[in-house]
Nucleic acid binder design. Structure first.
Lengths: 333, 333
DNA sequence: TCTTTACATGAAAACGATTACATTAAAATA
DNA sequence: TATTTTAATGTAATCGTTTTCATGTAAAGA
């Protein structure tokens, strides 16, 4: 079905070099020749073998997307954004995750050593020493999507978790006149979780509200974790007015608890989340939360990476911080 | 960082041919030699360049996953399943979608002609003539994930939409003693939608219930579509007892309508869905629906494809039909 | 001991593209 | 017209691996 450059060259009556140049729009090829080659290529359905091309140029237009897990809407939207940009730029997206069996570090090394991908987008909740070491002696362009800017030897895109959480809490205190705000955090080895908690703490402090340590529970970003933590919080004699869950999944857990304890949101207690996942708008009442533009995050990462792949400078890295947006629902009285 | 086969051969004092054979576990290599090569390979961090290998063997261990859209939980779980199987078998997953700008057919052709992927998993709501034509003169192993078994020139995995819907309706009629069942279908160019509707119709018929055509509305698989359709249904003077939404997203739309019309589920009317997406369990009340094992679907597809890639016979294709499971929630009185 | 067979390894071609360098033809200059 | 410059194309090497075929060596059989 597909022919090779040699066959095409034969048909055109030119050398393979000329065909190659014509296909790559080399200015040294005469217009007439180029036209002839291109028309023959179309007619004979010639497509340069990408493998052969990558092999000889030592450049791959495949982007490796390394994720901690292939699950949930957030990662899906990232993939979507990456795919979109890849398509426009004629790049390809290869996905890979840490499978329980293999660490993120191993996934990166695999991509790097096999010569398949020309660049890596790394999503990780935190950059540990192992990853840091790998990235340091890494020759492949890499963009890190992370909760915190804690590695500056490559480009990075991060979510403004801190300000997102800060604004949310500030809104509760100043617009809603709420003082008793509890927090179910994410796992604290996760940078996003840490930054969100920091925003929460500083917003309280800046508004002169004393932090109640009992009202801070470390969760796990799952619905069940949110359910467990909120049950604990709501059974305290000194019950908080609003629970700030560090992500929407845990906020959903709070809704489940409300149903089980026969409490009404927002009258009996309020809930706010973080992420603004798709279903949050369909919760009853609609969840007040912080929107993360994950699709844009993916697009931004891919754009930055492709730029870097075409111009691999070893210094001056970009560090983009993507702002979040406060979404006001009906989950707070 | 990475060395080539030549350098490794030199270090080992053998030819590149021997190294290649040792790396590929060729039985003709003496154990001592193999051990030596392998230990040097490990020490020197040698990894065969996959691009070069694929190039020469004309076999790629990259699987191209073509999807109509990169959105939602269903596709995410498929990707997850595929990725899992790929990892175990040392294959790689490349994703691609039709971008509004490009059709599914174009995405397939792109994968096929560029020589990157060694096999394709094609997810499509329906196989049209264009796709059929492409698949027919396709030399690349392909597995189709589809709602209906309507192309038998390649392996296929399909969901048992018909029986899933049939069982669900049968359950409503016989266990719940409900007779007035409306249906919001998916778009009818989608095979899944058609099969589910067929299950609904036949279940009614087999139970001697006359179909009320006013109670069948074509939806679009979105929450908003479900909301619109259910509003129409619930404002009829002859109102159905239960609405069967062809997917959970539209069922969620029914929940939104209930809130807006101030009706209670399941007392005022009931809702059942299809898919069993993650959030369905957290709806209030939990949605009665039909579970689709999407993760398994992805695994099954990848397994079948890899089998076919290793043994590309031109006949005897596998056609796997994956059963669904009835999930009983509290959304029906 | 000599021949045959089996085993282990090496030499070299091949895959399909790109690209440095060489070459030819045409245009510009003297 | 003779020479230089420029433009367009061709020749051939190259990338890293696999694999066919050839070769050498050791074991087996006579």
């Amino acid at each position: 079905m597909t022919i090779t450059i040699k066959e095409l060259a034969l048909k055109c009556g030119v050398s393979t070099a000329t065909v190659s140049r014509a296909m790559n729009d080399d200015p040294s090829v005469k217009k007439a020749t180029k036209d002839k080659v291109l028309s023959f290529a179309k007619k004979l359905n010639y497509n340069p073998n990408l493998l052969a091309r990558s092999f000889v140029t030592k450049k791959s237009n495949i982007i490796g997307l390394v994720m901690p897990d292939i699950f949930g809407e957030f990662f899906m939207e990232i993939i979507h954004g990456v795919d979109e940009v890849c398509y426009i730029n004629k790049y390809y997206t290869m996905v890979s995750s840490s499978h329980g069996k293999r660490s993120t570090a191993e996934a990166i090394v695999d991509f790097m050593s096999k010569g398949i991908v020309g660049g890596i987008i790394l999503m990780t909740p935190a950059i540990n020493d192992e990853i840091r070491k790998i990235l340091r002696l890494n020759e492949l362009p890499t963009v890190v999507i992370s909760g915190k800017r804690d590695f500056d030897r490559c480009d990075s895109i991060s979510i403004d978790n801190y300000n997102g959480a800060y604004s949310l809490i500030d809104y509760l205190i100043n617009s809603k006149k709420i003082k008793k705000i509890a927090h179910i955090s994410g796992p604290l080895e996760n940078n996003d979780a840490v930054q969100r908690q920091r925003g929460y703490l500083n917003a309280l402090e800046d508004n002169g509200i004393k932090v109640n340590k009992n009202w801070i529970i470390e969760g796990d970003f799952t619905t069940f974790g949110g359910q467990a933590a909120s049950t604990k919080l709501l059974k305290m004699q000194d019950r908080p007015e609003v629970i700030f869950a560090a992500n929407d999944m845990m906020a959903i857990g709070c809704y489940v608890t409300a149903r089980e304890l026969n409490l009404k949101i927002p009258t009996d207690f309020g809930v706010v989340g973080f992420d603004d996942i798709f279903v949050s708008q369909f919760l009853n009442p609609r969840l007040t939360t912080t929107h993360i533009p994950s699709y844009d995050l993916g697009k931004e990462a891919a754009t930055t990476l492709i730029k870097r792949m075409n111009k691999p400078e070893k210094n001056k890295f970009e560090h983009i911080i993507v702002p979040t947006e406060l979404i006001i629902g009906g989950s707070v009285k």
